[in-house]
Design a protein around this nucleic acid. Structure first.
Length: 339
DNA sequence: GATCCGTGGGG
DNA sequence: TCCCCAAGGAT
């Protein structure tokens, strides 16, 4: 049963797989980069970052030699910045201890920073042909539906899913098998409304359209205010978040205010959700009733007047970029026609 | 096992 | 506008 099902899956993948840049090369480094970028991130968001990244850091050695600020600047907008730092750190480990090459087994890959069970299996199977199943969110959902397992959690359930996924892996084409089941989850066996009529493994599926989903916890609302300070030289005042911050460490943003001062001139309001918090953002103009908190409030954080056309070189937070874009300062005029 | 870490796009 | 995310890993 699993054999036929796996064969049907591979046949479907050969017909329907998307043309993605990281599928055009067998370079293990490129495959690794793509897998890290794709963690909890949509393909559409990864595409442009991936090409820029590979242009700037085409090899493990090039990445290892880069400054962390360059690495973060190229990652800016993708979120989960810890991924970029760990990728950078792992590249330096590989140069120092592995002649700049990736280990060829999932067990050895698993030892590197930022590589967990999923990514180790993905890189090992796609780049090196190791017949090991990946289990990501797609695989969990697809296999659970195939087996008729109810939605939920638990170690037993996960064991059954791992076993089912492993049984679907073709020893001859493990990388394609893994990508096939993930592709099916991403394009056909959708979380909310699966397209069962177009599903290549529908004959083997015990669920066939039932698709209970688990609701998530609501975000916590919170108000936050930043200030826009510009000078006559076309520069904008930015602040760097502390290196030890848990959220967006080392990234640059507009200076935050303790609260929007009464009577302050509000330039812009918008919403921006970050992980578990739903921010109601206000951007206020500096001057009049508004003053920057001075002295110790900004202790340990760098502050810089940044020429607008240098903004692309800084690792800005997504929230800061969204604000600057709506204020007409991003992208800078000097690069707005080239991207 | 539970929690934390981001974002831009689509329904 | 609002809600829902999406190819996880570390702690």
């Amino acid at each position: 049963m699993f054999l036929d099902c796996g064969t049907a899956l591979l046949g479907w993948f050969d017909q329907h797989k998307r043309d993605l840049p990281w599928r055009r090369s067998s370079d293990p480094y490129g495959i690794w980069v793509s897998e890290i970028m794709l963690q909890q991130t949509r393909v559409a968001a990864v595409l442009e970052h991936y090409s820029r990244w590979m242009g700037s850091f085409p090899t493990v050695a090039a990445l290892a030699a880069a400054e962390e600020a360059e690495v973060l600047a190229l990652w800016s907008g993708l979120g989960y910045y810890r991924r970029a730092r760990m990728l950078h750190r792992a590249a330096r480990v590989l140069v120092a201890e592995h002649a700049g090459c990736l280990p060829r087994t999932s067990a050895a890959l698993r030892e590197l920073p930022g590589i967990g069970a999923y990514t180790a299996a993905a890189v090992a199977s796609i780049a090196f042909g190791e017949p090991v199943a990946v289990v990501d969110g797609n695989v969990e959902r697809v296999v659970a539906r195939l087996l008729g397992l109810p939605a939920g959690a638990g170690a037993d359930r996960l064991r059954a899913i791992r076993a089912g996924a492993q049984a679907l892996v073709s020893p001859a084409r493990p990388g394609d098998s893994n990508q096939a089941i993930m592709e099916l989850g991403a394009t056909v066996c959708l979380p909310r409304a699966p397209l069962c009529l177009g599903c290549p493994v529908q004959p083997w599926c015990r669920t066939r359209g039932e698709h209970p989903t688990i609701a998530r916890k609501p975000l916590t609302p919170r108000a936050i205010a930043y200030t826009l300070a510009t000078d006559t030289g076309g520069r904008v005042l930015l602040r760097q978040r502390p290196a030890e911050a848990s959220l967006m460490a080392g990234m640059w943003e507009l200076p935050e205010l303790p609260a929007a001062p009464p009577g302050a001139r509000v330039l812009l309001r918008f919403r921006h959700a970050i992980t578990v918090t739903n921010y109601a953002v206000s951007i206020v103009a500096l001057g009049g009733a508004t003053e920057l908190p001075g002295g110790d409030a900004a202790a340990g954080t760098a502050e810089r007047w940044v020429p607008v056309d240098e903004l692309p070189r800084l690792p800005l937070t997504g929230l800061a970029r969204k604000a600057l874009r709506r204020l007409g300062l991003w992208p800078p005029a000097s690069v707005s026609g080239s991207g």
